[in-house]
Design a binder for these strands. Structure first.
Lengths: 313, 313
DNA sequence: GTTTTCTATAGGATATCCCTATATGTTATA
DNA sequence: TATAACATATAGGGATATCCTATAGAAAAC
């Protein structure tokens, strides 16, 4: 029979017997009764088919096999300690690895607010950040290669829970030479969509921008499309048109501020997007999820409005 | 609760589940039924207090803790293989370590005959050879720091079994200038003990030599004593007297053969000593003991008479 | 809609674990 | 030599673990 049927306790007992040279003392050390240990040793020996100790009437003498086995056992028990460490780490908040996906129109602007505090407060957390489009992120989330996704609501994916983080207003970004750049206010209804530059398909931001001027939804063919928000910003600065930019991306971009004017859209509605944190409903680390959510809210600038406890799905 | 209560089987199952991503398939791989594995996993998780897998209705997804734990488990299972190797080695004849004690008047002359064959036939045997006086060897044998002792009979120690190996004749070693060196035969009765040189106290050879001339047993004070057989031989060569040397030590010593004459003692008795192999009666490796005994007998030169199966005690 | 596939649960037989009490043999001490 | 002290082994019994078959329930495949 193989050693596969041994338990760590067996090894522990074996080492204890070897160390103390006595079943009684080892039984004390292992916190079981002497008869129990005596029988356990007998069982181990019969399982392995090897005599581990010579019974010389009163004294126990480890055989050469017993000695060799105890040495291996000592090594293995160190490894068991490592398992305990893994388990212990699992009980510590925000430790180990957390794989987070963020949409690319948010990640580069959000993360700088979060990371310093995260590293300071939870140095044992290894954060893996992945930027992609919403759909890809959701696929990875449900597939298990991401633990958390930060994206714009609504996602409404079965088996995925969303926790509201904050509302990020949109700003109209327009070249200072454009007619919208003037001191007079601009309403959503004024956006005719003709001069509007957008991100390429797949970015939720484009859909959201088009939602704001719904009448023009189907006239957005042949428009200019950009791959990144920064390219978009440069296109606006170059006079290619106007666009809607999320608040966090407007933050501190002094380099282009002479060329671009940012203004809020007029109207009763607060134009913008709702950012949520999503995770599999079955994801075990609820505490980590909530600690992470709260840390994000705490680190945000005043330009966005944090959402306290809202949870969907 | 700690990982100490896990068994290797638990780890094996954990790894199997992680590898296959399915309880059913892992159950097949582990050769148990699916419900058994399902419950085992549940038990492990509750023991560790950690969710190792996310149960997403139909699919199993290892949590980050589960993944980390499986990685550790894989390492540990390699170590378990090492235990199996130790056990397997214990089943192989004459492998592992064998600690052999030999009396110093025999070891240097016997071992050269044995070691080549031993190394050839059992290359996996690590032989530890220890030379000392009989009493010290017996103490180490019963104390457990030696497995086997080769010495002159009788030992008759409780709990120690003796196996006859061979009879080693004594030769009278005498300077060619001495009166005994002549062509006429010398009888035991002729040994007056006055010119006899012996090893220091503790060597059984001295007692045996004195036994041969019993009348002189108590007149051996003030005699010359030597610490090693080779010193003894040189003393004889230098004309300090005569002595009795065991056959194996006479073997091939051409350097002194011009100065020393070796001759058998006359008489009906075969003067000499009985060499036995001794081990604790409780010593588990009976097979090894007999293989070792037989190998010694097989390697001996014709100058000694091997004993086939004699066993004492 | 039915079948297949996968996990979880229920019930039950057997084995394991660990206890107390006790037997047996050894060593130390009077 | 008797007695006490100590160590291991055995017996008996209760709690628990292990593993099975049968079956339920839910999702996926056809």
């Amino acid at each position: 029979m193989s050693a596969k049927n041994l338990s760590f306790r067996d090894l522990q007992c074996l080492v204890a017997i070897c160390d103390s040279g006595s079943i009684s003392k080892a039984a004390d050390a292992c916190a079981i009764s002497q008869p129990s240990l005596s029988e356990r040793l007998k069982r181990i020996e019969s399982q392995l088919g090897v005599e581990l100790f010579e019974r010389n009437k009163r004294s126990l003498l480890p055989s050469s096999t017993g000695e060799a086995l105890a040495a291996k056992a000592r090594e293995l028990l160190v490894g068991v300690g490592a398992i305990d460490e893994v388990v212990a780490a699992a009980h510590k908040p925000l430790s180990g690895t957390l794989r987070v996906g963020v949409i690319s129109t948010l990640g580069p602007y959000l993360m700088p607010y979060i990371l310093p505090q995260l590293r300071k407060q939870y140095p044992e957390l290894e954060l893996i950040i992945h930027e992609d489009l919403t759909d890809a992120l959701i696929t990875e989330l449900t597939g298990g290669s991401l633990d958390i996704v930060i994206a714009a609501a609504p996602l409404e994916v079965p088996g995925v829970r969303e926790i509201g983080l904050f509302h990020e207003p949109f700003f109209l970004a327009v070249s200072k030479l454009h007619k919208f750049a003037g001191p007079h206010s601009t309403a959503a209804a004024d956006l005719d969509g003709k001069d509007m530059v957008l991100l390429e398909d797949g970015h939720c931001l484009s859909d959201q921008a088009l939602d704001i001027c719904p009448a023009k939804r189907r006239t957005n063919k042949n428009r200019l499309h950009s791959m990144s928000l920064e390219t978009l910003r440069h296109m606006v600065a170059a006079g290619a048109g106007y666009t809607l930019l999320p608040s966090l991306s407007v933050g501190n971009k002094p380099s282009l501020s002479k060329l671009i004017s940012y203004k809020k859209l007029d109207g009763k509605r607060q134009y913008g997007r709702q950012i949520v944190l999503a995770h599999r409903s079955s994801f075990a680390r609820k505490t980590d999820v909530h600690l992470f959510s709260q840390l994000i809210r705490d680190c945000l600038p005043d330009s966005v409005e944090t959402i306290l406890t809202s949870t969907r799905h």
